[in-house]
Nucleic acid binder design. Structure first.
Length: 297
DNA sequence: CACTTGACCTGTCCGC
DNA sequence: TGCGGACAGGTCAAGT
């Protein structure tokens, strides 16, 4: 999926568009994508107004005036795309993509109405998801912190609750596995996925197959800095688009122009010119420089 | 509890 | 051109 930078980009886009809009209709073709009862839809969704759009880890929350929120996980191929009147600060839409919506990947179709002044034109918000792993759930806003995922998920990597020391401590719960598996474990820290795991490990010159217990504190310190650097750069670039990811206006992200190893097998390492290789670590496709990322640490 | 693997889905690409 | 298998940015349940 969309990892933290992609979800954050979607959040930022939706937060310039949705607040103040009223949800007037919803249609879904797949109960796994939208597993809510008609009763809850009628009581807590239809007719309610969007108050705010938030993110925690890779989860989006659209808070509603009803006291409920649309809690959304994009998983691997989810998209949330707004189609309608342009709003201030939302940027220019990708017309060639949005003109084709809804399409066969559309799982949920929200009808929206602006409620402020003259801006009452009809608009739509599409939840598209080719692989149907993602979901949109109506959950009472005050209960969101109690759902299993929120109870388990670790600190935000760009927030005040994570530091090099805290990362070192939290990694100890996965000390007998590889650092890549540990970074992908959302209970250690939130928001890292396959792209940014490979990118930050390259930055810290750590091989992804290195066991956590073999990492020194200075190595973890450097890794923390690289995580912050990579995620911040990716947010600036609007995320990474390898295949399906687009933002709220249907536009692709440009981080892949800056990627050092991810999906660059066969190319030269930007640090030492050694050919980048692809292997399998933690059951995931993994990209490394065999020269400057040493397994032993 | 820590760790690994398979399952959830659809689409695409690669080799035969 | 068609077919089979591997693979794709994530998480969860079930296994050891």
């Amino acid at each position: 999926m969309p990892e933290l930078p992609e979800v954050e980009t979607v959040r930022a886009g939706l937060s310039t568009i949705l607040p103040g809009c009223k949800i007037v209709s919803v249609v879904s073709d797949n109960p796994k994508s939208f597993p809510n009862t008609q009763t809850d839809v009628d009581k807590f969704l239809i007719g309610s107004e969007v108050i705010a759009v938030r993110r925690r880890a890779k989860v989006l929350m659209i808070d509603l005036s009803s006291g409920y929120s649309l809690v959304i996980h994009l998983k691997m191929t989810g998209q949330l795309v707004y189609v309608g009147q342009q709003r201030f600060g939302s940027g220019h839409p990708n017309d060639s993509l949005i003109s084709k919506l809804p399409d066969k990947s559309t799982r949920v179709d929200f009808g929206l109405e602006g409620i402020s002044g003259a801006d009452n034109q009809q608009a739509r918000l599409f939840f598209n998801d080719q692989r149907k792993f993602g979901w949109v759930k109506l959950i009472s806003t005050i209960d969101i912190p109690n759902i299993d995922f929120m109870q388990r998920v670790g600190p935000e990597p760009l927030g005040p609750d994570l530091s090099a020391d805290i990362l070192f401590t939290r990694l100890q719960r996965r000390k007998n596995t590889t650092i890549k598996a540990a970074l992908l474990d959302q209970s250690v820290l939130a928001g890292i996925g396959n792209i940014y795991a490979d990118e930050s490990l390259w930055g810290a010159k750590i091989h992804p197959a290195t066991l956590v217990k073999d990492l020194t504190k200075p190595q973890v310190s450097l890794l923390y800095k690289e995580i912050v650097f990579v995620l911040s750069l990716a947010i600036e670039q609007g995320g990474s688009s390898n295949s399906t990811y687009v933002d709220a206006m249907g536009k692709k992200g440009s981080y892949m122009n800056f990627a050092r190893v991810f999906r660059r097998e066969g190319q030269a390492c930007p640090r030492c010119q050694t050919t980048i290789v692809k292997s399998r670590v933690a059951t995931r496709g993994t990209h490394t420089c065999p020269s400057c990322q040493s397994t032993s640490g």
